[in-house]
Design a protein around this nucleic acid. Structure first.
Lengths: 113, 113
DNA sequence: CAGCATCCCGAAAGATACTG
DNA sequence: CAGTATCTTTCGGGATGCTG
């Protein structure tokens, strides 16, 4: 069965929706940090320097709202909080990985001008 | 021959480099506009509403600096300017296309919460 | 440890008007 | 047509200190 064509307007809208979700310097690096094994707040903060706690906190909330990250609180003392990726977030990683490689190559392109 | 592993730090750096190039609401939509056939300044502006001429102008300059767009001036009256994609920009479109489709699906994910 | 509260700033982006 | 000039507003993000 054939998909309906996507119109110009829709393309722009979908693209901007995605850009809105990932916008800023931090959201994708934070996702990457979690993927690479940093589940605790301070771990993530160390992985993605020099993000401040205030900014990290707000980024994590937005990622949660977009169903990319799950926040789990363990009621211990001191309190233990774990951030994990949702399975849905896996749909984003092909894009992120392409971006990593693109950034790697782009550095050469701009340097060798 | 095996590629050297990319370290955590490098991943973050490359990723942030890419994010820096495409940052903001407009650069990728502008590239898409050109790809879809809008080569003139006003055409692009109409394709990507509601971008102001001031913003579009600065975005195009940044895209030029990153070798993604070429600006060509034809010395006619009135002056004719054409923006075209560089071949290098083709390396970015796999990412952009994934983002379009991701945005399309994401809308459903968030709506159906 | 995992944040929140405040204060603050520069850059991104919008509004409007104007030029070669 | 293809922008530039000015002015203003918004907002992402930094600095610092504090709390359960």
């Amino acid at each position: 069965m054939k998909e309906r064509e996507i119109s110009d307007k829709e393309i722009i809208n979908y693209l901007q929706d995605t850009l809105y979700v990932i916008n800023g310097k931090w959201k994708l690096p934070v996702l990457m940090a979690i993927k690479r094994g940093s589940t605790r707040f301070r771990e993530i903060q160390r992985y993605v320097p020099p993000i401040t706690s205030r900014v990290l906190s707000s980024e994590l909330k937005l990622l949660e709202q977009n169903k990319l990250v799950t926040r789990k609180v363990y009621d211990e003392i001191p309190v233990l909080v774990e951030y994990t990726l949702t399975t849905y977030s896996e749909t984003l990683f092909p894009i992120i990985e392409l971006m990593v490689y693109w950034g790697k190559d782009h550095r050469k392109v701009i340097a060798g001008k």
